[in-house]
Design a protein around this nucleic acid. Structure first.
Lengths: 155, 155
DNA sequence: GTTTAATGTTTGTATATACAAATAATAATG
DNA sequence: CATTATTATTTGTATATACAAACATTAAAC
């Protein structure tokens, strides 16, 4: 009985809008993330970085020697994903790794440091685009709200 | 000058919370989507479907003969992704495709139809979990809000 | 001090997704 | 009616990401 009620609620909510699943959190969250990703990708394309690589690199530049584990925590990605991102950026001569014992430190190369001002421009462009499409207040409020819910889902 | 102001804004916003990027829309959106995805994945695991496959299959069951293009539109995925999802479900004998001319129709198999009640249970479980963690109102409001922003990003 | 547990990182493997190009079929245009 | 454009779908290829297991190192326990 309880379950059937829920199901009905879901179906009702589903049909309330144009797209079949538009009110379902699974879809909203995913579709939205893909679109924001795309916007970010466009902003970073001119210096040939994906958003993930770009944010990771900015962190490394701002915290030279940062460890993969810390990067994973800050970027909310798994350690293995961080390893993969670093590998690729090592190929592109943007970072170097030094391992001593069980800890690894990641440092930016001179090439990366030179790129830093351009990276900030890309970041600005992304923000400018977001703001022009979503509005500054709306964007800020949404980011904060999503983040709050994100925290709840972590436990 | 304009750009520098923006940049400062970003850095300020970034540092305002625990995680470095927690107020950045790129991260909030992606991290949140990954967490919701995980929750959904757990709910569907017991019948061995990923959330994408499950939602696609539900749509096919509710609209037998639906075309891939329509599925792409409803699920907000690219046609090629839909093709890939269908391929896998054809292997698992959950759907069949018939092609005539340039249109393809996707139908559920008896096996899929039998699974339907269990799928609804999984969906309920997902919703129950979401609600218990996020609260019903908060969840609904967020889904709607994200969806509104999503629409803005589509243009 | 030797064994056991915990920690940090990397691999092996698998996933969903996308873009661009290729097909194939229908519709539009001259 | 022949050519061109549009539409629906599928492939080829590439991506970011994750999980589970493997290492390797340090810390804890007895």
């Amino acid at each position: 009985m309880y379950i059937q009620t829920k199901c009905f609620y879901f179906v009702f909510v589903m049909k309330a809008s144009g797209s079949r699943f538009s009110k379902c959190l699974y879809f909203s969250a995913n579709a939205f993330a893909r679109k924001v990703e795309k916007l970010a990708t466009n902003s970073w394309k001119k210096i040939n970085l994906t958003p993930s690589h770009a944010y990771l690199l900015m962190t490394v530049i701002e915290e030279p020697g940062v460890q993969p584990g810390k990067l994973a925590e800050e970027m909310q990605l798994t350690p293995s994903t961080i390893t993969r991102l670093i590998e690729k950026m090592e190929e592109n001569k943007l970072v170097v790794r030094t391992t001593e014992g069980k800890v690894t430190n990641v440092y930016p190369t001179p090439k990366a440091n030179q790129l830093y001002p351009q990276m900030k421009d890309c970041l600005d462009e992304f923000y400018t685009n977001c703001i022009s499409i979503l509005g500054a207040e709306e964007m800020k409020r949404t980011a904060i709200n999503i983040n709050k819910l994100s925290d709840k889902l972590s436990s």
